[in-house]
Amino acid sequence: MTVTQEARPGADDAFQADFDAKIAADQRIEPRDWMPEAYRRTLVRQVSQHAHSEIIGMQPEGDWIASAPSLRRKAILLAKVQDEAGHGLYLYAAAETLGVDRSDLTTRLIEGRQKYSSIFNYPSLNFADVGVIGWLVDGAAICNQVPLCRSSFGPYARAMVRICKEESFHQRQGYELLMRMMEGTEGQRRMVQDAVDRWWWPSLMMFGPPDADSPNTAQSMAWRIKRDTNDDLRQKFVDMSVPQAEKLGVTLPDPELAWNDERGHYDFGEPDWVEFKQVVSGAGPKNAERIARRRAAHEKGAWVREAATAYAAKQAAKARTTTNLQEASA
């Protein structure tokens, strides 16, 4: 249970000072520790959005499991999508340590009251998308998530350590698939370039709006639940991706992309922030479909969950009866 301000009226200042000192010393905040309500709320939002992203993120790649063109690729992709369900589970568990309930978070997702990463509102149109999602989308996710292994909130930081390790496998499988395809037929190379053209800009948008337009960044950085600004991470991602694209032999669809010796970084063009806002606000190509699918699975499965609950209750009642009988006969 989370100890909130309300639990100990009058003692706020001392608790706040203790909390501030822990943050300043880069110590972890644990679920039983006192925390400001706004910190808790921000984390619930961040962790649950992250969990939802894992779950919705199963869909664009999941669509290709059935048609993966070799059994090895099918197994890799199935395992990867299974990992994502697992990531969702750890993250929901981390969110639950903040005093929220997973079923309530699921309801918020399927009613469109909580967001998930907008990248998953784009369609996956050819099998190379599986590789590009691994390379760029998982790559951008890693860029965002590696600093979160040092998040001030313990359960989130620990979940992130495990998730980042698995994500790095995912990224490499994506890159390896693309390498293989680029060494293949002309048709395969066209598929890869087509997928890169479609996913590059949405990947840059995964770091969120420009710093000047990101109202929550300063507070989240002060609380150390976010460790780098959106623009810093975006730059880092571009700097890392350009040599990878060159090695692969694909063109990144940005005419402004050029090495800047003075800055020691690549210059790059501005993502289409109007499109970004549209997709975030629900008007992306696949927003409605992604949520509808999650909602349909949840609703269709209601009778199964109810059966499991009813069965568990019957078993518990039987166990109580047995215990009572044993006690009575003792």
Binding site: M58, G62, G88, L89, R293, H298, K300, V304, R305
Partner: peptide, 10 residues
Amino acid sequence: VTDAPELEEE
């Protein structure tokens, strides 16, 4: 996959 009654079942 993406259609099960619960994440554990996925």
